[in-house]
Amino acid sequence: MKRLSRYRRHKAAGPLLLIFALLAIGTTFSVASATVKESQSVSARSASIDEGKQIFLKGCSSCHGLNAEGGAIAPSLIGVGAASVDFQVGTGRMPMADMSTQAARKAPVYNEEETAALAAYVASLAPGPSIPEESALNYERDGNSAQGGELFRNNCAMCHNFAGQGGALTQGKYAPTLMGVEPKHIYEAMITGPQSMPVFSDKTITPAEKLSLIKWIKAAEAEPNLGGATMGRIGPVTEGLLAWVLGIGLLIGIAVWLTTRAR
């Protein structure tokens, strides 16, 4: 100890001590925090899987089966992944309001926690696409809207219309409008292919391209009506209607007025 204390006032002692202290604190903290997080996460997950299972049994199993194995009227959910559940439940499509042509977007029935629990439960059945991380959805930073527009016209416009307003499919099915859809849900729809939509895997459209697409859709949503009233951005049908009803209607009205005899 004496020898050690002799170097107490050595000029290198201060910096060395500082480094030692920093290392000690850093290591302790990282080890401690990692273990804490891990243990919390594991327990939370199992808890949320249990919770999700309870919700599933109450709200979903009558169609999808007690073990999510599917049935005559609903598909199996084994292997559809958390992303699928988050999309279907998060956009209100599931649980379905009625068994008609397809599940419509509506106000979600379950809150965020319940949705997450359901997603965790379904994900625990078999591996599948997972919910994209918040950090992987920064489309404003990572996307390119011109490229996104080109991708949109190549892959999406044939069903969702040139401005993402939606369009008709066969037998009463439809591609819904993309206006007002959360970026996370757009992303999930692409990786899971809900209902009539095909899956756009990361090989077909890379994650970066997916962000470009989302950026373009969000830009189209926010775009002001540059030429005046848009009448739905659905092309010439409403334009023709307006030409007849307002245009010819007004002109005939004025022609009648012009040829009315003064009384």
Binding site: M158, F162, G166, A168, A220, E223, P236
Partner: peptide, 19 residues
């Protein structure tokens, strides 16, 4: 009232089509 908003349609490429 807007008519034929060509900027929304994008340039023509034979491989593309809109619903």
């Amino acid at each position: 009232a807007s008519i034929n908003p060509i900027w929304l349609y994008g340039p023509y490429t034979p491989g593309q089509i809109s619903a």
